[in-house]
Design a binder for these strands. Sequence first.
DNA 1: TTGCAGGGGTCAA
DNA 2: TTGACCCCTGCA
Length: 293
Amino acid sequence: MNYIRTKNGILVKNAKDFEPRHVFECGQCFRWKAMPGGSYSGVAGGRALRVKKVGNDILLEGTDERNFHEYWAGYFDLSRDYGAIKETLSRDPVLKRAVEYGSGIRILKQDVWETLVSFIISANNRIPRIMSTIERMCQSFGERKEQNGETYFDFPAPGRLAAMDEKDLRGCGCGFRAKYVLKAARIVSEGRADLYSLENADTEDARDALLYFPGVGPKVADCIMLFSMAKFDAFPVDVWVKRVMEHYYLKRETSLAQIRRLACERFGPLAGVAQQYLFYYARGTMGKATDRG
DNA sequence: TTGCAGGGGTCAA
DNA sequence: TTGACCCCTGCA
């Protein structure tokens, strides 16, 4: 990819398949906030960043070239050709519309531990509350850092959360998910599961391993694999994806497991990317979407 | 103003 | 297969 250094950041040139609003509001991440003027501000990988579209370019403010290469280029999946992915998916007439609607979506490569906890919290929950719960957890238990005079908080490490009580986590707004987060933290910090090795496992094996965590069912496991392990054949089915799949493809009430199976057959190794376009399309066009950040 | 249903699922029975 | 689960919001 092409980029130039600026005074306090990196300008990625001709990033035509990168629209910050699509990337940050398609439901894959919870720590990016929309700022006045259309930029997004967030924390990932222990680093703070501001992201803004400038014409056809993307300005990443608050990083240097080293951190850009070490972290952000991978996080934003910048080496992948989403134009080619969209072309392939657009052979399907429904996906063609969905891809046009969310043309700037990219699948982020997020931290596995943070993604595990975030999606445990997402169960039967709404986006604004998920975001505020995670932010409170970070402020209460995450490492405090400063960058250009601004304070931000890292996502708390497994050992840090493992040392807490259930009531501490309830205090952050986790609700009934507090016990799941706590147990997951203890499993990871005690070395009973190696989250980061799952990236190298095949999708079915990684899925089985994730289902071992309390609070992780089929949908959450698929989200973790798609949004932190680049397993693009994972197809998370939530109510919106169920809705859009039944409406445009299946024409009848269908079980979650069956929708997942049919989608994987139909979309193959790009099923997860297709899911993101369909999800964003459904959220924007099908009925009420009152809880969008 | 108050009350109630329901939400980007999972668990347990 | 079904109800309970935190708690906040929208709506009657």
